[in-house]
Amino acid sequence: MIGLLQNLVDAASLGSLYALAALGVGLLFGILRLVNFAHGDFISIGAYALIVPSFEVTAQLFIGTWNWTLMIPTVTLIVVIVALISDALVFRPLRRASAPTLMIASFAVSYVIQNGILMIYGARPKAANLWAGLDTPIMFGELRVPLLQIITIVATLVLMGALTLFLKRTSYGVMMRAAAEDFRMAQYLGVRGDFVIGLAFAISGMLATAVSLLYLSQTGTLSPTMGVPLALFAFVATVIGGMGSLVGAVVGGFLVGFVVIMLQAYLPEELRAFRDAFAFTFVILILLIRPAGIIRTRALVERV
C-alpha cells in the first residue's frame, strides 16, 4: 500500500514536469500549428544559463548562486529572449509554410542550439548542485516524500493556475484563445498575429524555464541533450492529450508520467530496460483508440 502511494507521488511529480513541458509545446501548436522540437533546447538553455561557461566537468554555478528571487527572473528572461529570437529569425518568415516545413525548421533551431551549447560548454555531462537542501524527505506517516517533489507539484499547480487565469481573465489571454480557435478570423477581428505569437513563445519559454530549474535540481546533471527526452515525452503527451487543447496537454503529461513510473515499478526485472518501448507502445495504442486525443478540440476537426 505504501509502495503504491510512493509510486503515485513519484508519478505526480514526473507527470508535473511532463505536463509543464507539454503545455509549452501545446500552446505553440494551438496557435501556430508548430510542433516545436526546439522546446527541449529551451529547457537545456535554462539549465546552462545557471553556470559559468567552461569545459570543466563540475559546473561552477554563477547565476545559480544568486538568491532565488533574483535568479528565477534572470534565467526566465534569458530563455524568453532565446525563444523570441528563434521566432523572429526562423518562424516568423515561415508563417505560411506547411506543417512539415515548420517542424523541420524547429528541428534546425534545435540542432543549432544544441551544437551552440556544445561549442561553449563542451559535450561532456556536468554535475551541478542546485538547491541542495531540497532533497530532505518529509514524512507523512510512513510515506517519505522529498521536499523537492512537493515543490515540483505545487509549482506546477501554481503555474497552471496562473496560466488559466491569464487565458480566461485578461484581454491578452482572450486574444490568444481566439487565435488558437481560428487564427485568421481572430486577425480579421483585430488581434495582432505576430504579437500573440510572440506572447505564446514568451510563455512557452517561461514554462520551459520552470521545467529546467525543477528538472536540474532533481537530476543534478547537465548535458547538451538534456532537454530532448523531456521534449519527446511532451510531444507524445500533447498528442495523446488532444493536439491543440491545453487541458489535453496537462492530462496527457500526467498520464505519460503515470505510465512511465508504473512501468518502472511493476515491470518484471528483465523487462525493465525496455520501459520506454512499453511506454511508446502504449502511446500507439491510445492513438489507435482515440486518434484525435483524449480531449478533442473543435479546431482540429476538418470540415468538408
Binding site: 510531444f235 498528442v239 525496455f274 518501448a277
Partner: peptide
C-alpha cells in the same frame, strides 16, 4: 495498425515506433 491515422497523429505514431526500435 497505424495507416488509418492521418496528419499529426500518424506522425507521432511513427515517432513512437522509432523510440520503440531504439529502446
Amino acid at each position: 495498425a497505424i495507416m488509418r491515422l492521418s496528419g499529426i497523429a500518424g506522425s507521432i505514431a511513427t515517432f513512437a515506433f522509432l523510440a520503440i526500435v531504439n529502446s
